[in-house]
C-alpha cells in the first residue's frame, strides 16, 4: 500500500464549519487525506458529506475553518477562496451524487470539455484554425479517446451521454473527472444505483485509476462492501462532525460507528 504515510497529506481540513440558515451542515470538521491513498468518507444521510465536497470544490464557502490542498510540488494551496473552476485547475476533480453529465453532448465531447483547463486555444484559434490549435485539438481528442478506451467506454465515444445505460453514465462521470488531470479525485456516492456486478467493476476501476494515474481518491459511499473493499482509511462523520477514523477493520469494530449506523433503531 503506497502513500499510507500520515505525515504526507494531499488534503488538510481544519475546523471547517458551514451553516445553512440555522442548520450546521459542517461543525468544525477536521480531517486529512493521505497522498496516494483511497480514503472513504462515510456517515448517515444528511451528515454533511456532500457539503464537505462542495466546500472543497468552491461551490460553498465555509463560515470558518481552512482547507488546504497539497498537490505534491511543495505548494500548499488554500481552497476556501478559489472558485470552482480554479479548484479544478489546481488539480481537484469530482463527480456528483446525482449524475451531472452534459446530456446532449457525445461521450467524447463530455471528456473533451474536461480537457478545457489543460488547453490553450482561444477565440482566434477557434476561428482561424491555425496549426497550433489544430494540433492541440487532435492531441486532446486522442487523449480523451485513450482515456475512454482504457476505462471501458471506448465503444461509445459517439453516443449521447443521456443514452448511456445508468452504470456507464456513472463511469463516464469518473472518466470525465480524470480528463481534468487531477491529483485528488473526489467521488460522491459512485455506486449509488449500481447492481452488485457493476459495483464490483467500480471497485476495480477505482483501484486501477489510483495505481495508474498516481492520484489520491476521496470517496463518499454508502455501500459498505465497496468502502471496506477499496479504502485504506475511513473517516466517519455524523451531524457535521467526525466521529471516528481508522482502517476498515478498526471502523468495523468501533462502537461509536455501530451506534451511529445501527443505533437508536
Amino acid at each position: 500500500m503506497s502513500g499510507m504515510d500520515a505525515s504526507d497529506p494531499v488534503l488538510v481540513a481544519v475546523g471547517v464549519t458551514v451553516e445553512f440558515g440555522g442548520i450546521r451542515a459542517l461543525d468544525g470538521l477536521s480531517l486529512e487525506v493521505g497522498r496516494g491513498s483511497i480514503t472513504a468518507l462515510i456517515g448517515p444521510n444528511g451528515a454533511g458529506k456532500t457539503t464537505f465536497f462542495n466546500c472543497l470544490t468552491g461551490i460553498y464557502r465555509p463560515k470558518s475553518g481552512d482547507l488546504f490542498f497539497l498537490p505534491g510540488d511543495g505548494r500548499t494551496i488554500p481552497l476556501t477562496l478559489l472558485s470552482p473552476d480554479r479548484v479544478t485547475q489546481q488539480g481537484i476533480a469530482r463527480t456528483f451524487q446525482n449524475i451531472r453529465l452534459f446530456n446532449n453532448l457525445t461521450v467524447l465531447e463530455n471528456v473533451l470539455i474536461a480537457c478545457h483547463c489543460r488547453m490553450k486555444a482561444g477565440l482566434l484559434g477557434a476561428l482561424l484554425r491555425d496549426s497550433r490549435t489544430m494540433r492541440e485539438e487532435r492531441e486532446m481528442e486522442e487523449y480523451s479517446f485513450a482515456l475512454l478506451d482504457r476505462y471501458g467506454l471506448g465503444g461509445q465515444v459517439n453516443e449521447l451521454a443521456k443514452n448511456l445505460p445508468y452504470g456507464e453514465q456513472r463511469r463516464l462521470e469518473i472518466v470525465r473527472a480524470l480528463a481534468t488531470r487531477p491529483k485528488l479525485l473526489l467521488l460522491d456516492e459512485p455506486a449509488a444505483g449500481l447492481n452488485d456486478r457493476e459495483t464490483e467493476d467500480l471497485a476495480g476501476l477505482i483501484r486501477l485509476i489510483r495505481d495508474e494515474l498516481e492520484l489520491s481518491v476521496l470517496l463518499i459511499e454508502h455501500d459498505m462492501g465497496l468502502v471496506m473493499g477499496v479504502s485504506e482509511r475511513i473517516h466517519v462523520m455524523d451531524y457535521g462532525k467526525p466521529i471516528a477514523e481508522g482502517t476498515p477493520e478498526e471502523i468495523q469494530r468501533d462502537p461509536e460507528v455501530i451506534r451511529a449506523y445501527l443505533g437508536e433503531g
Binding site: F102, N103, E137
Partner: peptide
C-alpha cells in the same frame, strides 16, 4: 461551425447543459 467545435464552443455547450458541472470541469463560467 468552427466555434462550435472548438475549446471555447464546447465550454459554451457545457454551460448550457449544466452550469455546475461546467465549472467543475475547469471552465470559468
Amino acid at each position: 461551425h468552427r466555434l462550435e467545435n472548438s475549446r471555447l464552443g464546447r465550454a459554451w455547450l457545457a454551460l448550457r447543459e449544466d452550469e455546475v458541472a461546467c465549472q467543475a470541469m475547469g471552465v470559468s463560467r
